[in-house]
Design a protein around this nucleic acid. Structure first.
Lengths: 250, 250
DNA sequence: GAGGCCATTTGATCCTGGTCAAAGTCGCGC
DNA sequence: GCGCGACTTTGACCAGGATCAAATGGCCTC
């Protein structure tokens, strides 16, 4: 269904050098467990814009995002779509025990996945508890963020939604480069206006208008097409509606 | 923080007779594992309307809902609230590895919980994989439904939202009494208009108006205050916006 | 540099659902 | 029975965001 490009230059074969070694589903594994994983893993690459999975597809593999960004979304028959998750490096795709995909997965940027055939992975999970434990932890975290996002979708105004999204991306970006978010920080916004609208339950026109409004209010500064500067982080937080917003995310 | 009533008449002490034995977090446990659980478990009861947990509370226990219904919700500083989950018998409250509650939990009807002190439960989980496996499975299911609900919140109209909620409650009710949902079925709607509005991201006035509209259109029939009759299930499904809606839920 | 493609911005207007307000219904205790 | 409180319904009006439409700007190819 999805076309694999299958190029991998680095010595990713060695899990010890893997960039997501400490955060992915395998992060708890010991050396011997990693060896087993190395035997059954393989890599796949997708170009920006390519579909990775369609809802209803048979899933022959589960995978970790190694590099790049993908979206998880649901589309209604009449075309309305809602993004239900943003998949970043170390996030997990698929679920043991289910072989039919429930949502669409699309590569937003170029994406590399570390894949495991589903059956061997499931077998492995019953034998090495570290994988299941880590997957449980990751799933609980995702459930918490999904629930927090429900409040954004159900109760926030357009402006608050935009501010919330910007803050999430800003914090994630800071955590990736191991810095604390602060005044003057900047980051790339990897999403088109349409993708943002799908995430926020808005139209792309409303997203554009609110971005302009936040720019005019001095809450954000846009550098070129993709780069966002936050001169005053507290100001942005205030725009999200929930103040004091739960502190920094790991 | 929450007041426990601590009354339990039935011989719930015996896990073998527990009404949620086959669906709860303990459903995979063998007899010997159940014995360990029985040693550390205790029951708590809450009356309709009572809070079970506040966001920010220290959680000294995790628990399974044995009987009754509770809501999981988030409240913004200015009072806007969003329900992020409905907790039904067999659903799990709390999470291993976290000691601060993230959401408010409130008993909607009288509720009985089967509680485990968190520490012993966590220890037990590392020793008996069956519990962790089942919890993972349940959490993955909840994540899927949370994501489906995001589409309801983000993209559906008020009328579609109401229809979606009614359909969910109808299906759950049918599955509880081990019947297939069908034309002419009826069920109790355990939620006030306000609770419905919190679930759907609407105001209670809009909920009331749309309920009236569905009644006028003959999609639903109201018997008394709480009872809903569905004369034509297909008609209700059509009102949800997603037709063919994924079949029956266990 | 011209042209075309795409994402984005901006404008004008409409409509769904929110807000504010008042009346209706039910159940309950006195 | 009466009155009270909680919940619900209904109405009038308003506004936030959607819709439809057009203009702008960047980037790529030729």
């Amino acid at each position: 269904m999805a076309s694999a490009m299958g190029s991998l230059h680095l010595d990713l074969k060695d899990c010890g050098n893997c960039p997501i070694r400490h955060r992915a589903v395998c992060s708890r594994c010991e050396a011997d467990e990693l060896e087993v994983l190395e035997d059954i893993k393989y890599y796949r690459s997708y170009e920006a814009g390519q579909p990775i999975l369609w809802s209803g597809d048979h899933m022959e593999f589960v995978a970790s995002v190694v590099t790049g960004i993908a979206t998880l979304s649901q589309t209604m028959e009449d075309g309305r779509t809602q993004m239900v998750g943003l998949l970043l490096p170390s996030d997990f795709i698929g679920r043991p025990g289910r072989d039919i995909a429930q949502f669409d997965v699309v590569a937003v940027s170029d994406v590399t996945l570390c894949c495991f055939r589903r059956r061997p992975f499931e077998d492995l999970m019953t034998r090495t508890p570290h994988i299941g434990q880590r997957l449980l932890e990751m799933t609980l975290d995702e459930l918490d963020s999904a629930r927090e996002w429900m409040t954004v979708l159900g109760r926030k105004t357009a402006r608050e939604k935009i501010a919330s999204l910007l803050l999430i991306v800003a914090r994630r970006d800071a955590s990736l480069r191991q810095k604390l978010p602060g005044d003057g920080m900047s980051f790339d916004l990897p999403l088109t206006r349409e993708a943002m609208s799908d995430y926020l339950g808005l139209t792309l026109e409303t997203v554009s208008r609110q971005m302009s409004a936040l720019k005019k209010a001095g809450i954000i500064v846009l550098e070129g097409k993709r780069r966002v500067v936050i001169p005053d982080l507290e100001g942005l937080v205030a725009e999200t509606g929930d103040d004091m917003d739960g502190g920094v995310i790991a």
